[in-house]
């Protein structure tokens, strides 16, 4: 299997794409940064290692990239987002050249930030070999330790009383400063005008009040229900440290248990919202 640089070269040489979205070395050792490579000369910047945590697919829907022929370096988890974007008419399959990464797991954070543990999303990953790609590249990685603590936290929350759960989330959401980093990084938050920015009417208060924060976080989670592919980027970028993955994963769990649905697997499969089954469960409806 070729390495990322020779793959990138051949993409340009064979004019498979106008640009390549990939990872580059960051200024600090033990970090990577997203990079857009447009010429053969720049190709040497590309790297691929276990610090490639970011989900780059979020850049596919950026205005400047829309409609262009773009190549992207994407791990299986990132490809789920690409699948979802195709299913939601945001990108066309033929416009995106997917360099799928065979991946054994990435690090939870950069050097000095949990970099010795495996990212939680990798523990339950079912797409270590990508499920949609144009070309494969292998990421060399080492066995990383780590447990899925969030799965336990979800169960713990489920077992709490409603009041306890409310108190828990009240405390978490209180820290929200409405920076919307969670939204900006999310590959599936591609709306040009988010409902949070809608002013007529203002469904979600702009100032970071308890009430506005609660509304925002519920709406964010709901809009991603049945869509979120679990890349966990929102939680990673949240400056307030709100455990957003708990909610996201809870909703993915619901989608699975109620509908047997998993997002991001098949671009041609019907989406969860937008379809229905006459036999959908309704034991909660009077």
């Amino acid at each position: 299997m070729a390495d990322i640089i020779s793959i990138a070269k051949s993409i340009f040489e064979n004019q498979k794409a106008e640009m390549i979205i990939g990872y580059a070395k960051a200024t600090k050792e033990g970090r990577t940064r997203p990079v857009v490579v447009r010429t053969l000369d720049e190709v040497k910047e590309l790297v691929l290692n276990s610090f490639c945590l970011n989900n780059l697919s979020t850049y596919l829907t950026r205005k400047e990239n829309k409609g262009k022929r773009v190549a992207i370096v994407a791990k299986g988890c990132d490809i789920k987002a690409i699948v979802q974007l195709i299913a939601e008419n945001q990108i066309r399959r033929e416009n995106v050249y997917v360099v799928g990464v065979k991946c054994s797991g990435v690090r939870r954070g950069f050097e000095g930030h949990d970099s010795t543990k495996i990212a939680e999303k990798c523990i339950t990953c079912n797409v270590k070999t990508p499920h949609l790609f144009d070309e494969l590249v292998e990421m060399k990685g080492e066995e990383l330790p780590g447990t899925d603590e969030k799965a336990e936290s979800i169960v713990k929350l489920e077992q709490m009383t409603a009041n306890e759960r409310f108190a828990y989330w009240e405390e978490q959401f209180e820290r929200c400063i409405k920076c919307y980093a969670c939204r900006q990084i999310c590959p599936l938050c591609y709306c040009e005008r988010c409902i949070a920015d809608k002013s007529m009417p203002r469904w979600i208060e702009t100032s970071p009040t308890k009430r506005g924060n609660f509304a925002w976080n519920i709406v964010r989670a709901f809009h991603l229900s049945g869509r979120c592919i679990g890349c966990n980027e929102c939680e990673r970028v949240c400056p307030a440290g709100i455990p957003l993955s708990l909610i996201n994963r809870k909703m993915a769990k619901v989608a699975k248990s109620e509908f047997g649905y998993e997002s991001g697997m098949d671009p041609n499969a019907p989406t969860l919202i937008g379809t229905y089954d006459v036999k959908d469960k309704e034991d909660f409806i009077r």
Binding site: N163, R165, F166, A167, I247, A255, E258, I273, D277, F284
Partner: peptide, 14 residues
Amino acid sequence: RRWILFRQLLKFVG
């Protein structure tokens, strides 16, 4: 279908 999801979300936040 929307309610099935939303109800579970609401429950989860208390």
